[in-house]
Amino acid sequence: MATISMTVNGKQVSGEAQGNTLLVEFLRQELKLTGTHVGCDTSQCGACVVHVNGESVKSCSVFASACDGGSVTTIEGMANDDGTLGVIQQAFQNEHGLQCGFCTPGMVMSIADMLKNNPQPTEAEIREGLKGNICRCTGYHNIVKAAQSAAATLAGAAQAAE
């Protein structure tokens, strides 16, 4: 066991990790941040997507120790400071972008990274960008609508700020 430290959702945290402790295990079991889900544990489904140093990754396929000293954002870091839903989360609610909700944390994190790199994606780009996220309920249409709606809201907010 080694003690590792990282910034998670803006807060400095430390915890114990073995060599083979995955980032998702560290987040869920050591830090009790259970919003990040384990769907497949084989890097297929994307329910475990978080951001490490600003890039989306599958936390079931990254070792916790590889993130020692780094910065991690999870779904718990996506709400507004007052606890209300963030823009992408609210878009999922508005567009009925979830049914069982199991895949939603990963979907939100993937869309956040996608919109950071490409603020006005086409529908095809959204579907391509969500290739690493599997949803077994919605058929994806409302998830795509949520991504489009979030992109429009964020673009409006950016314009208002100028």
């Binding site: 997507v49 990754v57 990254v62 993937s110 990274d113 996608m114 290739k131 690493g132």
Partner: peptide
């Protein structure tokens, strides 16, 4: 290659 998350690692 793979998906965006795989490409980031």
């Amino acid at each position: 290659i793979g998906d965006p998350q795989v490409r980031n690692r």
